[in-house]
């Protein structure tokens, strides 16, 4: 976790969660773009704690995006449309993470292993 601001990374995930939820609920795309931007900030904040394979995937994803934008193979509009899918999968893991946290202190879960 980021030592200098321990609340910043969790706050990023909370913003991603609610921004994606807004897009899913309303179909309005800008919150999904905000979610992906915040995900990028989260990635930078947590960079030194990420596993090597995750760093490779992140670099390939960012590099590919920049290369395709610079070569005009995709437009910013298309990229904005892709943000919905990217944000959704981050939202997916955050939501499941909360369920896992609740399970960790459940007596039933502990008794049934």
């Amino acid at each position: 976790m980021n030592d200098s601001s321990p609340w910043l990374s969790p706050l990023c995930l909370v913003v991603i969660f609610f921004a994606t939820l807004t897009t899913e609920w309303t179909g309005y795309q800008p919150p999904a773009i905000l979610a992906v931007f915040v995900l990028l900030v989260f990635t930078l904040l947590e960079w030194k704690y990420l596993e090597l394979t995750t760093k490779v995937i992140a670099m390939v994803a960012i590099g590919l995006t920049l290369a395709l934008l610079l070569l005009s193979q995709i437009s910013l509009m298309q990229l904005g449309m892709l943000c919905g899918s990217v944000a959704f999968f981050a939202f997916f893991l955050i939501a499941l993470g909360l369920l896992k946290e609740a399970a960790l202190t459940s007596e039933s879960v502990n008794l049934t292993s």
Binding site: A58, A61, V86, F89
Partner: peptide
Amino acid sequence: IFFKMPLQRSEIVFFAGSVLIGRL
């Protein structure tokens, strides 16, 4: 829980990165 959320950092970034590459 709020402070434990980033412990899934690798999974979240990995998953989102894979989706972005696939979609691109």
